[in-house]
Simulated assay, not measured.
Amino acid sequence: MNKWLLAILLSLSLGWAYAQQDVNTESTANSGAEENYQFADEQQRQLFLTLTAELRCPLCQNQNIADSDAMIAHDMRRKVYQLIQQGNDEQQVLDFMKSRYGDFVHYQPPVTPYTMWLWLLPVLFAVFALVMITRKQRVQEPSDLEEKLARADELLKREE
């Protein structure tokens, strides 16, 4: 019983510590640690916002680099900003990021023979499952049933 109580108290204290850490991280992030980028025109700014929303943080994996506070996301935003300032267009920036971090970094990966399996395997599995289910539910043919009944009758006659 004491072990359970100790485990519960430990988990509660760790949860509280993590909650405090999140609060401290949020207050630090909102206290001016945000990057302020200067753009020559509104088109560059929109391109920056679009790209940072389309690029995935390699560390967080389910966040784009615009929303992530990971150090690598900060570095990626800075690199996107530098590439835009150098006059690169959207495709050139995406190509640079893909060459550096792989296709995973973009939320819209290209269709390749490897990524095609991501679409085909679930469909093939569903077809296979449907075939297996219909095979199992197939009703036995009457001739087979008649044969079994005849054998059962023979066995009953032998016992008498």
Rank of each mutant, 00 (worst) to 15 (best):
W4T: 06
L12P: 01
L12K: 06
S13Y: 15
L14H: 11
G15T: 12
W16N: 13
A17V: 11
T25M: 13
E26W: 07
E26N: 09
S27D: 08
A29M: 11
S31Q: 13
S31M: 12
S31C: 14
A40N: 11
A40G: 06
E42A: 05
Q43V: 08
Q43H: 09
F48R: 00
L49D: 11
A53H: 15
L55C: 01
C60F: 04
C60K: 02
Q63Y: 07
Q63M: 10
Q63N: 08
N64W: 03
A66Q: 05
M76T: 00
R78S: 13
K79M: 10
Q82F: 13
I84L: 04
V93W: 00
L94I: 08
L94W: 01
D95W: 03
D95S: 13
F96N: 01
M97P: 00
S99C: 06
F104S: 13
V105S: 01
H106M: 03
H106C: 03
Y114Q: 08
T115E: 01
M116E: 06
W117F: 10
L118Y: 03
W119S: 03
L120R: 05
L121M: 05
L130Y: 06
M132I: 07
M132A: 09
K136A: 09
Q137S: 14
Q137L: 15
Q137I: 12
V139Q: 05
Q140C: 11
E141R: 11
S143Y: 08
L145R: 09
E146W: 08
E146D: 12
E146R: 12
E147M: 10
K148T: 11
A150R: 14
R151M: 08
R151K: 09
D153M: 02
